[in-house]
Amino acid sequence: MIYNLTLLLNGITYAGLLFVVASGLTLVFGLMRMVNMAHGSMYILGASVGWLLYKISNHNWVLALLGAGVVMMLVAFLLQLALYNKAYGNPILGIMISIGVSWIFTDLSIELTRGEAKAFSPEGIVGSTFQLGELTYPYSRLIVLVVAIAELILILIILKKTKVGQIIRAGVDDRDMVSSLGINIELIFLGVFAFSGFLVGLAGVLGGTMVSFSTDGAGSMQMLALMVIIVGGRGSIEGAALAALMIGLLDSFTSAYVPNISTIIVFSFVMAVLVLKPQGLFVKEVRKQ
């Protein structure tokens, strides 16, 4: 019983991490039609930058967390301003540019971590555990879940209640039309992409605390993020949350019970979605562009 409860909690908290990583990617994909193939490497770079700050500040975890977020936000801002904006309307070009960027970021991460796997193990609450009945569970995983839920609520509020949110929603539907109505959509792109950088930087440190991180992991995090946005639907935050939950739980339980084929099961699931419902499981209406 405890075993299954642990698996359940692991799945949910893992889903939290996936959501933080993928939420930025889905907004970018929805709004800018750009598949950022450097997203996984940005996650690792965020973790690596966080690790640097962690060491310099003598293990100040909060500084590492927020610092990683801010640095990756600036990196994303510059990336969009200098490179990605040139891929407007040309998804394949965007993919190729981002592949090149991912190689650069991976090398930078290797430089920062000397190619070794690292983990954040701070003292204090973040590094300790709590009791849930008979179960001992780490706070770090709970924190990830809390951050994910807070982020979900924040984004939903912004999307539904603010003008920027309306612009983003309209932009995901039809960005040329939004531009035709006098709104500088490129500025919005800049903001959204910078925000996705902040989230992925945060996620890097969170993931590095929850488990660990290494520069080898860029590819798999990229794939996981892509899976979440494929299943959840382009540009859908709610979809990303639900997809993250599905994938997180699926991964957690299959890894435990059928470890040899757990990847195959998860991938087959994603492939099935791609074939049967390519617009995603949770998208209400498909707008033809």
Partner: peptide, 17 residues
């Protein structure tokens, strides 16, 4: 080319000038 993700009222306010 109306926006499926915006309400009628939002259409008339989000870009108003």
């Amino acid at each position: 080319r109306n926006f499926p993700s915006l309400t009628v009222d939002e259409h008339l306010t989000f870009c108003a000038s």
